[in-house]
Simulated scan of single mutants.
Amino acid sequence: MRQLIAKRLLQTIPMLFFVSIVCFGMIKLAPGDPVLSFVTPNMHPEDIERMRASLGLDKPAYVQYFLWIKECLSGNLGYSLINHQPVLDQILERLPATAGLMGISIALAVLLAIPLGLIAGANRNRFVDKLINLVSYIGISIPLFWLAILLMYFFAIKLHWLPSMGMRTIGTDSAWDVVKHGILPCIVLAFGFLAVYVRYIRSSTIGQLKEDYVQIQYAFGSNKSTILFRHVLKHVLLPVITLLGMSMGDLVAGAIVTETVFSWPGIGTLGMTAVKGMDYPVIMGITLFSSVMLILGNLAADILYGIADPRIQIKR
């Protein structure tokens, strides 16, 4: 297992290098000029060029890239072009909000998907299975931003049960206030993943119920609930762990959309602000940081897979 972890960590180096090249190239090919946001109508061309040079944007693209890589290797992701604050400090400041939103959402999706998927698979083509499938299809089909607006309209504007935006109420400093602000974003982010996980677990459950060990358990007098949650569940968890690792990219993208709609003060909101202001260093820093999260998420999935099935460790 240690060799696997070391090997995967070494593989992250060329992957991050490739991601940084692609992201930097796309940023440079995008239309617009960040210097224009600082230009006033009466500013002379010489002053504009001086400002461009002070931001390091007067050099060729490949020189800017290598200078950025050099700073990254020293632990510095650069400074924002908008607020002139260190990029790494801004990301770390907003990381707890994003990590909390993502962690709670994925945990909620998994905890609900396991029993729902098992029940749907055990009652194939019955009413409860059709009902769960209907909810799953709705979750897969609905865009996150539309669901977020819909929930915000009903629960925040119409019913006034929950706050609609932000992470805290001004003048209120309590944990319950943060929880209330996080309910709607967590539901929106978890719903899409819940629908996908339920479909996978249902399919895996149907396959496992055809195995010989299930019939043997019935012969020993075990009831359906015992077989499902004590025996079938062990085999169903393996594809779920793999699915969790594959879902990290969608989780990061979903968090960006959800944070933007609900004005949640996380990395996603910071990234959208950077894109609107063409803040290149912040965009590059968030992209690199998100790539690291994705790679570590897949590594964690591999480790959990090996723990859940010891035979994986032997093969590797």
Rank of each mutant, 00 (worst) to 15 (best):
T273Q: 15
L81C: 02
V232E: 07
V240D: 00
I142N: 02
E71C: 02
P31S: 05
G100S: 09
H231K: 08
G171A: 10
G182K: 01
A156F: 11
L150M: 13
L238V: 12
A122R: 00
P96V: 05
S204Q: 14
L101V: 06
V240H: 08
P239M: 06
F17I: 09
G271Q: 13
P115H: 10
I140N: 00
D250F: 12
L9W: 01
L101S: 02
S247G: 07
E46S: 12
K28G: 14
F155V: 12
G75L: 03
S204R: 04
P14Y: 06
M26T: 15
N298K: 11
L228F: 11
I91R: 09
G139A: 04
Y213N: 07
D177E: 02
Y153V: 15
Q11M: 13
F154A: 03
G32H: 13
Y137F: 15
Y65K: 06
V22T: 11
G207H: 04
H235N: 15
L36T: 14
A107I: 13
V188Q: 05
G207I: 03
I114R: 01
V232M: 13
I157Y: 09
T12S: 08
M246Y: 09
K224H: 12
L228C: 12
N125P: 01
I138N: 04
C186V: 14
Y197D: 04
V236F: 04
T169L: 00
G221D: 02
S290N: 13
P163F: 02
M26Y: 07
P239E: 02
I267T: 03
Y79P: 08
D302H: 12
L288Q: 14
R8D: 01
R50F: 15
I91S: 13
A148V: 11
E259V: 02
V178C: 00
V63W: 07
I13N: 03
V179N: 03
I283N: 02
Y200W: 06
L184D: 03
V178F: 01
E71L: 05
L209Y: 05
Y218P: 09
M278A: 12
L92S: 10
R8N: 05
I149Y: 15
L134G: 15
Y197G: 03
Y137G: 14
T169S: 13
V87A: 09
S174E: 07
M26G: 00
K130A: 07
L16R: 01
F262S: 06
F38W: 13
P163A: 10
I21P: 03
W176V: 14
L294K: 02
A253R: 12
L162W: 01
Y137K: 10
F220W: 03
